[in-house]
Nucleic acid binder design. Structure first.
Length: 725
RNA sequence: GCCGAAGUAGCUCAGUCGGUUAGAGCAACGGAAUCAUAAUCCGUGUGUCGGGGGUUCAAAUCCCUCCUUCGGCACCA
């Protein structure tokens, strides 16, 4: 039996996950995992937090806490969010686990033994006070290129030049403020280049299965050629390099984080009481199929770097499928942390805690998966999808069937009357016949129609063939990672079920032909069960609810060893509910989402309170404030700066003296309307160069979140050069 | 301004290795029905496939050009 290993990109434990992450990797991976488990396939779905790296130490310092505090905060928050979203990991681990350290170190030593690492010494800035080597973002100094004193690390903010850290003039450590010294430091470089050809062969062998965007990014990297890459860093926060002379050195995240998939699997195996079982999943075998879900920012790590690591280690499985998604936008705009544009999972869960609401989110995201290009999440769409699709089509069919059963059949699955007693057998025969027909050719149904009309009327025949063809089509979509289409096809089966209910009109036959009515509802009850299972990968909570209403097996694809081998997906085709079985009183599966709810969420978008980011220690004393000379200035001439979108070059007069100021206001003010205006400028700033022109001051204007801008002007006329305070 | 992506029905999107009357869901409109959360089912699209030009027997699909939008960069002292 095949073993299907699934990983979803490890989220970085330096922030909360948002719906973009969910759409990129976790929801599609979860749908796929649940689908496979419903099929009875052996499936292992692995993920965890990525918890090392410079960014985390920077956050820790900024907040005055330890890195451990940071990763605990985000690991537990994200882990809980995933659980509540119903992401059915077999294990959600973390890279700070000792087992991960062991695993990563083993790999490192193995590379060393195999001669894949080269040791090399180079100079780097060292802070003698803080006693640490300085990563690029911890040093600043004078740019060797343009002389700006705001240059940092390996790049100048002013002129954009890239250079080696040690070329920086007058370097200053951002940790201690002291001047760092240059010290030799040793690192291990991984010879990625030795795998150039092997990766090319591997990638091309997968060309038929990987999406265009995945292949193209991979090829473009390979085209540039793989080079040696440092596999270690001078850092305190990471997996230590396991060598005697390697104090203060950690394995670089490129070569460490992805191993989290493997260490997580090892921990899972230990928890199962079968510590060696991880090999069943990771060792190369014809039965092992590995699929890696991720966002487009992560492609080459999973098609080049990780495969190299796996190849280097011998007999590991390589990713067979890499379904990479594009990005999810929010209300038409890109996610932005600083602008608070986007929806965090935890915020959603706080406002929409109901299981059915979580299902509605999963459904909305699944229906809009950025499979081929960036797509959009909007609250209005969330409402529309919930109200007009989930509630109106799927929910409604479940409800009308349940209501009918309770109104006319005492809440039981109808017992088939004498004349339809053979229905279950006829159902099996019909399903068998339809199975032989290729998909996509509706006319092929016709040849069986007359044969089965002895047992089924045309409406019944139609709905059962919609079920059979739909189930196959959906399975095919899942297997080829067209999840959005899978969902659409699933909803189409629910539509066919509603159509059947309408066409069969049991509310009429209940009076005119009770036998026929019983038969109709018998079919409907079976369809409710089928639909609940078919929707389970997307709406597990509501599916379980519907199955519980039918007092039947409510499994919806969670990890469960006992589930392997039981093909519930296939069972969707069979009438498994027993005649006369009692059902629970109907419950509404999906409530409506009101306009007011949508408006409330919309109004929350983008309302980052700037005040929040001003912390105590940033408060200025009055003396500091006085250092800035604000003066009124009269604009005597203005013109656009050529080739610049935003800059206006202004000639201003301050108390009789002229100077030139560049201002980024061209999108909002024309040179003509600027001329003659009295504005407020910061008059004692160091001159700066913008687009090659000198700016001797800064003009004051108000900015809003959207980037709109309004000049600060005077309420009454004042001479130029007047002090503003 | 540079780089990248994209512009297909009112909306969200599919189709784009050239080939019959360009598709789906939602919305809208008309009808049927009333078991059901006014939920369902049926029917209805003269869409310049962003504009223009070219290649071709044939272009939404290839080439050129222009326009617009969205990212990234530059820039916003």
């Amino acid at each position: 039996m095949k073993r299907r290993l699934i990983t979803a990109a490890l989220p970085y434990a330096n922030g909360f996950i948002h719906l973009g992450h969910c759409a990129g990797a976790y929801i599609p991976a979860d749908m796929y995992a649940r689908f496979l488990r419903l099929n009875g396939e052996q499936t292992l779905f692995v993920c965890g937090s990525d918890e090392y790296g410079v960014a985390i130490t920077i956050s820790a310092e900024a907040e005055g806490v330890t890195p451990r505090d940071i990763i605990d905060k985000y690991h537990f928050a994200n882990s809980e969010a995933f659980a509540r979203l119903g992401i059915s990991f077999d294990i959600y681990s973390r890279t700070s686990e000792p087992e991960h350290t062991r695993a990563a170190q083993e790999f490192f030593l193995d590379w060393l033994r195999k001669g894949l690492l080269v040791e090399r010494e180079e100079g780097q800035f060292y802070d003698e006070v803080a006693k640490m080597f300085l990563p690029d973002r911890y040093v600043e100094g004078v740019c060797p290129n343009c002389g700006s004193d705001k240059a940092r690390g390996d790049q100048c903010e002013n002129c954009g030049a890239y250079y080696n850290q040690i070329e920086l003039k007058n370097p200053r450590s951002k940790v201690s403020g002291q001047t760092p010294v240059i010290r030799k430091t040793k690192h291990w470089y991984f010879k990625l280049n030795e795998f150039q050809e092997a990766i090319e062969v591997y990638a091309e062998s997968r060309a038929a299965y990987w999406k265009d965007n995945v292949m193209q990014q991979t090829r473009s990297w390979l085209k540039q050629g793989l080079a040696e890459r440092a596999a270690s860093r001078d850092l305190s926060w990471g997996v230590p390099v396991p060598l005697p002379d390697a104090d203060g050195k950690v394995i670089y995240v490129w070569f460490e984080a992805v191993l989290g998939y493997i260490s997580a699997t090892k921990i899972w195996a230990q928890n199962q009481g079968t510590p060696e079982a991880w090999r069943d999943w990771w060792k190369k075998s014809d039965d092992n199929i590995y699929t890696a879900f991720l966002g487009k920012d992560n492609i080459v790590f999973h098609t080049i770097i990780f495969p190299i690591i796996l190849m280097a280690a011998d007999d590991y499985v390589l990713p067979a499928y890499v379904p990479a998604n594009e990005f999810l936008n929010f209300e038409g705009q890109k996610f932005s942390k600083s602008r608070n544009w986007g929806v965090y999972a935890r915020d959603f869960l706080q406002d929409f805690p109901e299981p059915a609401q979580i299902d509605a989110l999963r459904y909305t995201i699944a229906a809009n998966l950025p499979e081929t290009r960036d797509s959009d999440f909007s609250w209005k769409d969330f409402q529309v999808k919930n109200n007009n699709e989930l509630a109106a089509v799927f929910g409604n069919f479940v409800n009308r069937t349940a209501q009918f059963l309770h109104k006319y059949f005492g809440g039981a699955v109808p017992v088939l009357p004498e004349r339809f007693a053979k229905l279950p057998e006829a159902w099996e025969l019909l399903t068998d016949d339809l199975k032989r027909e290729p998909l996509g050719r509706e006319e092929s149904r016709a040849k069986y129609e007359s044969k089965h009309l002895r047992y089924f009327n045309p409406d019944e025949f139609a709905v059962l063939s919609a079920l059979e063809f739909g189930t196959r089509r959906i399975a095919e979509c899942y297997h080829s990672f067209r999840l959005r289409e899978a969902l659409l096809e699933t909803m189409n089966v629910a539509r066919a079920a509603n159509k059947f209910f309408n066409d069969a009109a049991p509310w009429k036959t209940v009076k005119t032909d009770p036998d026929q009515c019983a038969k109709t509802l018998y079919v409907c009850a079976q369809l409710v069960r089928s639909l609940a299972v078919m929707f389970a990968p997307v709406t597990p909570n509501s599916s379980a609810e519907a199955l519980r209403m039918l007092n039947t097996d409510s499994y919806t694809g969670e990890p469960d060893a006992k589930a392997a081998g039981v093909n519930r997906w296939n069972d969707v085709l069979h009438p498994l509910l027993a005649q006369g079985a009692m059902t629970a009183p109907p419950k509404i599966l999906f409530g409506k989402i009101e306009d007011a709810t949508v408006e409330k969420q919309l109004s929350k978008m983008g309302t980052a309170t700037a005040a929040e980011t001003v912390t105590e220690e940033e408060l200025l004393g009055i003396d500091d404030f006085r250092k800035i000379q604000l003066r009124t200035a009269k604009v005597i001439a203005a013109e656009r700066v050529p080739k610049s979108e935003k800059l206006l070059k202004l000639r201003v007069e301050i108390a009789g003296k002229e100077r030139q100021i560049l201002a980024g206001i061209a999108k909002f003010y024309t040179p003509e309307e600027m001329t003659g205006k009295t504005v407020v400028v910061a008059a004692n700033l160091k001159p700066a160069k913008l687009m090659g022109l000198e700016s001797q001051g800064m003009l004051l204007a108000a900015n809003d979140d959207e980037g709109n801008l309004a000049l600060v002007t005077l309420e009454r006329e004042m001479p130029s050069g007047a002090e503003v305070r």
